[in-house]
Each structure stands twice: as C-alpha cells, then as structure tokens.
Design a protein around this nucleic acid. Structure first.
Lengths: 226, 226
DNA sequence: CGCGTGTCATCTGTTGACCCCCGACGGGCG
DNA sequence: CGCCCGTCGGGGGTCAACAGATGACACGCG
C-alpha cells in the first residue's frame, strides 16, 4: 500500500479512530463541504477495510457532518443559509438554558476562569486577531455549558457547534468590530457575578442573536456556496 | 433459514429497515432497557447478516437508544434519574423556543388543530384514559415544534422525546390528576390565541417543569430500575 | 480455604469478495 | 430532431469467514 504511513492509528477500535479522524478532517475544513467520499478509495487511502469506514460514515451522518444519499455515497454536509439560521436559534436556546443552570452553581474558580477568558478576548480584539478571539470566545461560551452540570445539554451543544463548523468563525466577522462583542461579554459577566441568572440569560440571548440577525442580510449570502 | 417470515422487509436498504425495526421495538418497550443485544443471535433471528445490523446498532447508539460497550456488545440504554431530569431541562428549553417561534407563524388551521387536540385531552382526562391522554399530549406539544418552522429544532426534539421513551408516559402519571395539565394547556392556548409568544413560553416552561420537579421526589425513584 | 493465574469459549472487530441497484450513455423509434 | 428504452459500468449494500480480545471457569499454589 502507499498511504498507510500518515495516519498513525493505535489502540482503540478502527471505527472510532476513523470516525475521529474524519471528524477532525471535516471540522478543520481540510475536507470541504460538498466533497464526495468514495468508500473504496477512502478505505484504501486509510489502509483499512470498507466495513469500519462505513460504520464511521454512519456515525458522522448521525452527527450531521456528512450526508448519506442512499446508493449514491456520502458527501460532506453542505449547510444552507436557512439551516444555519435554524442552528443559531437552537444554540441560543441551549446556551440560555445553560447559563441559567450554571450561574447558581458557579465556583470561585469558575468565575476567575471566565474573567480570564474575557480578558484574553479583550487583548485579541485589540490586536484584531479574529481567529484567536474566536477560539477563546468559543471556550467562553462552552464554559457556561460545562458549568450547567447537564451532561446531555453539553453533548447537544458540542454537536451543534461542530455542525455549524467553520461557518461559525466567519459569522463572527459579520459583527464588524469585535468591540461590541467584548462589551456584551462584560455585561453578561456582570450579571453572572451579581448572581442574576435571568438577566444573564437575556443578555446572552441578545448577544447570540446579533450574528443571527445579520445572517439575513445579503452580505452573508456569499458565506454559503452552492 | 428458520425465522425469515415474521419481519417482512421490503424496499429500502437493510440497514434502515433494521434500524427502524429495532427503534420501534425499543420505543414500544418490547425490548426492555438493559436488554443485551447479541449480534449473531439478532442477525440470525432477523434473517440478515451482521454487517447491516452493526450499522443499525451504531445509528441507534448515536441516537442514544442503545449503549455500545466496546468489545462487550450493545445494550438497550437504561436511563438514570439524573439523566432523565437533564433531558427534561433540555426539552423545556427546546419547546420554549419552539412556541416563541411558532406563535407568530400559526395559521388558522394550526389553531383549530391545537384546540381540537386540547378538547380531546379534556375528554381523555375525564375518562382517566392516561395512555390516550399521553398520546394526544405528545401530539399537542409536537404541534408547536412543527409549527416553529425550524427543521433542526424539530429533529432534536423528536430525538430527545424518543430517548426519554416510555419513562415519559410514566412521568405524566406523577402529576396525579390530569386536570391540572388540562388547565395549563388551556392557559397556554389562551396566550397563543392572544398572540403573546413570551407569555405562552413562560406558561409552557412552567407546564413542563411540573413533572421535572416531581422527579426529585422519592416516589419517582422506582420508575428507574438498577 | 482464598487468591492469583492459566486456559477456554464466545462474541465482537475486521476483512475481502459477491451481488445488485442506480445513473449514464448510446442507439433506435416516433 | 427529440424522446424513450436497453445496455453497460461503477460503486454501494450485503454476506460469510478469520482473527483478536474479553470475561468466566477451574486448577494450583500460598
């Protein structure tokens, strides 16, 4: 075989290894949306058989990262603008629930962690480092979900963000300046520190809704191929 | 082969047929939680090979209906009390979003349909027909999700309710009398007819929260085996 | 008598090959 | 000239067999 060297698989079952490998490839945009995934070719290039690959593709399909057209093979899922807006709405609901659950449970460590993340975002915003800002921003939002103590909520939220994938970082740029986002984070943290879950939730909803509204604008259209 | 007669599979791919068959078996509680699913035996009893069966089990695992223990086989998922409470919280958030999206979009047909369902629930409550009440109740809640126009929300909601499965109908009985539920539905519909999404959402949240609170009580513990 | 270890059966994980369906292409008919 | 139908190729769907691992049972040692 030719290309068996690059992916260095080890301990776990092949299906899981392939699953996570492809997941990573898709999330990092090395596999562009719309890419057709031929089973034979893919299996051969990974140095495995079609069985585990098919199961991995099935799992990816269940998570919404690939679309399986019966008898016609798998394709990396391509999001429409409408679907992206829908995902944004659900995300808003999930994170709103998360922050309401999280605020009464936050430890002092949690709060200092949140403030640290917020401070990092301020720095990155000043440097206009959008990608670093995006990374920390995602961690910031995720912190509330983790602190909610709701395992299922956590899973669904992560799955949703994964599906929204790299479009998410681009939608951040739609906001124009990162300063507004920073200010909104500050307001949210203030409500959190004051121990007011409902106010924090309302602020968070408004915060998430910003790019969502912008998605309706015509400038957003070119984020979506096809 | 011996047992190829009972399940009459036809057109679609085996994987999907098996998937939906097992899904139905689990949701109808013909397969009790905790049941071990041996691949060879199951495949033989269905008159198929292990390949499609494994893929179907993988999909069921992704939907949370079965749990796959590596190298140890698949088991029909057994919910803990904690997990059920978590699912209830997420459900509340999803339906709250759904009704807020749905109210401004409701057609006249939608409203009459909702009132029809509410009327049916009144009847079933008077007859103390809990199972019929439960069925209509589920349809009532689902109506809002469908009317939200958010496809993804719809999928996630259905998946969540499926996972909660038959515990859901039992949790309804925790309410004690069905009358309170009927009254809450009436209040919700009133807010819906008045075109007040926020009030409807708050009422719906309170409505869903009722069994959720009861789940903490010790009487609820015996709903969960293990 | 209890604990650790070696063996064994059984089931999952994986493989490679076969079958059939779907979509495309080309020829014939209206 | 355009539409319909038959044929052909490619690729997904399915199957039966191999191999590795896991949990259980039993034997032997302390």
């Amino acid at each position: 075989m030719s290309a068996q060297e690059q992916p260095r698989f080890e301990n776990r079952t092949l299906r899981e290894q392939v699953f996570e490998h492809l997941r990573e490839e898709i999330l990092s945009a090395r596999l562009a949306p719309g890419t057709e995934l031929h089973e034979v070719a893919l299996a051969e290039s990974l140095g495995i058989s079609r069985g585990p690959l098919r199961e991995a593709l099935g799992r990816l399909a269940a998570e919404g990262l690939v679309t399986i057209r019966p008898r016609r093979g798998a394709v990396v899922t391509r999001f429409t603008q409408q679907e992206f807006i829908e995902a944004y709405q659900v995300r808003e609901a999930l994170e709103s629930l998360a922050i309401r659950l999280a605020v009464p449970r936050l430890t002092d460590e949690d709060r200092t962690h949140l403030h640290t993340l917020a401070a990092q975002m301020v720095e990155h915003a000043e440097r206009d480092d959008a990608s670093a800002f995006f990374r920390v921003n995602r961690e910031f939002h995720r912190a509330f979900v983790l602190a909610s103590g709701n395992e299922r909520l956590c899973d669904m939220h992560e799955q949703l963000l994964n599906q929204m994938g790299r479009l998410l970082s681009k939608s951040l740029e739609l906001r124009g300046s990162l300063q507004q986002s920073v200010a909104e984070h500050r307001d949210i943290l203030e409500a959190v520190d004051a121990g007011e879950p409902e106010r924090a939730a309302r602020l968070l909803e408004a915060h998430i809704e910003v790019p969502s509204r912008l998605l309706d604008s015509p400038e957003a259209a070119d984020l979506f191929e096809s």
